[in-house]
């Protein structure tokens, strides 16, 4: 009997399988802090892209009022709106981040079921090696195979979700760098804008503030994504070991071990 009250499996195959399940669970749980970090960091993305959109509209109005002196600024604000569109597009992908939570928690639930099925097999093995016990083990084996298949899909989903998160961060990084350059150019235009200098300078300063906020946000998200990607690598290794068990019955050796 183990300290938790669970019966101890009588064969090493079952004990190894139990260890692999535990390892996969540890790896999945380890992903949460990094996913949370990225999620919290990207939370402001919607507001920031809306702020940038409004700023670009105001800047365009100011450029219109400046006439020929505002021509370059108008062009720059159009680039800004292009950047905003990219942010909005990737923000739609942020819903994928929510599904990443869903997939991760579903994977934990599947693992829990796998653990209970494995424990049930140990109980059946201890209780009975009769034909009805054998048939119950066959049922457990079938259900376990289904869960392992589901588990493989969930882990692929976690990997895919984390990779998409990485792409989001890389798009934001690109937007940050281009928006910073636009802010600098608007500041340069402001110098030669005469009566409109103050207005363009204010646009440039506000844009610079948004860019800084975006950069800070994205750096934090990138830290989370880096951690999550590393975690996914470790999870995939553990999952490969688990998948190897997919092709061979885990519960049948329990009988052979017991009857030997």
């Amino acid at each position: 009997m183990s300290p938790s009250g669970t019966p101890t499996p009588r064969n090493t195959g079952t004990r190894r399988y139990r260890g692999i399940l535990r390892q996969v669970e540890v790896r999945i749980r380890a992903l949460f802090p990094d996913i949370n970090l990225a999620n919290r960091a990207l939370f402001r993305l919607t507001d920031l892209s809306e702020d940038m959109r409004i700023l670009s509209l105001n800047a365009e109005l100011a450029a219109g009022r400046a006439g020929p002196r505002g021509t370059a600024v108008r062009a720059l604000t159009q680039y800004t709106r292009g950047l905003v569109r990219r942010l909005v597009e990737i923000n739609a992908d942020a819903s994928g981040l929510q599904s990443l939570y869903g997939t991760t928690t579903s994977a934990l639930r599947t693992l829990r079921h796998l653990r209970q099925l494995e424990e049930a097999a140990v109980h059946v093995d201890i209780a009975d090696i009769s034909p009805s016990g054998q048939s119950a083990l066959d049922v457990l084996e079938r259900v376990r195979a289904g869960h392992l298949h589901e588990m493989a899909a969930r882990i692929a989903g976690i990997n895919g979700g984390t990779t998409r998160l990485g792409k989001m961060v890389s798009v934001v990084d690109d937007v940050v760098s281009q928006a910073a350059s636009i802010a600098t150019n608007i500041a340069a235009e402001a110098v030669n804008a005469g009566a409109h200098e103050a207005e363009f300078a204010a646009v440039s300063e506000t844009m610079t503030r948004y860019v800084e906020e975006l950069r800070t946000m994205n750096d934090r998200a990138a830290r989370g994504v880096r951690g999550a990607l590393e975690g996914c690598k470790a999870l995939s290794e553990a999952a490969t070991t688990l998948t190897r068990h997919q092709s061979k019955p885990a519960f049948q050796p329990a009988i052979q071990g017991a009857s030997a």
Binding site: H123, A127, S130, S135, A136, L140
Partner: peptide
């Protein structure tokens, strides 16, 4: 769910 394994083991008997 916690009693599933033991219940299953006893039931199939």
């Amino acid at each position: 769910i916690e009693v599933f394994p033991a219940m299953m083991g006893a039931l199939v008997h």
